[in-house]
């Protein structure tokens, strides 16, 4: 299935105030892949994500999702196939209740109020959040908000899931549950994160960004084993790959 492909070609973007967001990013992600997007603060992760769904339009180079190039005209179609989970769930959950929020996308696709109900319930079941249906978003915990935000995206049945810092502001247990949930999804996944352990567990492939460029692109385990690369891109080895300070490296160096 070719339409789950995400491809960028020499992508450039400069913000109005002169800050360089992207300076030539190229990669190709194929159907069913899970790719981690890592890099220091200001490396261009969020800018890149905004290009994938047309919230920002490229200045030079191109983005292609499936068979379509991302342009102003194709935005609507592209946003149907790319589901974006925002970093701050409060930005994403803007409707009065969880139900209405999850229904927001499908209703914009033209579904009637009757048709939308099973879609919403199904999406909420998928993230195990049916019981939150009638709650207002401000009453939810951070973990619940994240689940509902994911359900809201799933309700539009996207082919590709794009996530910005999915594990930020979650407690360890909730983070674990989120990882387990994401492992059950068959979608193509693109996850921008500072949580390198999460990247290691969820994504076989990693793209490292730095100052708007791709610094490395390859198997996650290889990239996180490259100390020079990590230092250069202001990253640190995931904890699970570091030698345990207590037992002095008796643990296996790599889980995978």
């Amino acid at each position: 299935m070719s339409h789950h492909i995400v491809q960028t070609n020499d992508l450039h973007f400069t913000y109005p105030d002169g800050t360089i967001g992207l300076a030539g990013v190229s990669f190709r992600i194929t159907h069913g892949e899970s790719v981690a997007l890592v890099g220091a603060n200001g490396a261009g992760k969020s800018t890149l994500l905004m290009h994938l769904n047309g919230c920002l339009l490229t200045m030079r180079g191109s983005v292609q999702v499936g068979d379509l190039p991302v342009t102003k005209k194709t935005c609507a179609a592209i946003r149907r196939s790319i589901g974006m989970v925002f970093q701050d769930s409060d930005d994403q959950l803007f409707m009065p209740t969880v139900f209405e929020d999850v229904a927001f996308g499908p209703m914009n696709l033209g579904l009637s109020a009757e048709e939308v109900e099973p879609v919403v319930i199904q999406a909420l079941e998928r993230v195990d959040a049916t019981h939150l249906k009638d709650r207002p978003p401000y009453k939810l915990s951070a973990g619940e908000k994240r689940r509902v935000a994911i359900a809201a995206v799933l309700a539009m049945s996207p082919d590709i899931l794009v996530m910005d810092e999915p594990s930020s502001s979650l407690d360890p247990r909730t983070r674990r549950e989120l990882i387990e949930l994401l492992q059950t999804f068959k979608h193509t996944k693109i996850i921008a994160t500072h949580d390198l352990d999460l990247a290691l567990e969820l994504c076989p492939r990693t793209i490292v960004l730095g100052r708007g460029r791709v610094l490395a692109d390859g198997p996650t385990a290889d990239i996180f084993a490259d100390d020079d690369l990590l230092a250069q891109s202001r990253l640190e080895k995931p904890l699970s790959m570091q030698n345990c300070p207590r037992c002095k490296g008796k643990l296996s160096q790599n889980q995978r």
Binding site: R79, F104, L109
Partner: peptide, 22 residues
């Protein structure tokens, strides 16, 4: 924040009108 919300809305197909789900 308003800008981010707007982006989130656009990502889910907002076209200037809220459709009440109830």
């Amino acid at each position: 924040r308003a800008q981010r919300i707007y982006q989130a809305m656009c990502c889910r197909g907002f076209e200037g009108r809220l459709h009440p789900a109830k």
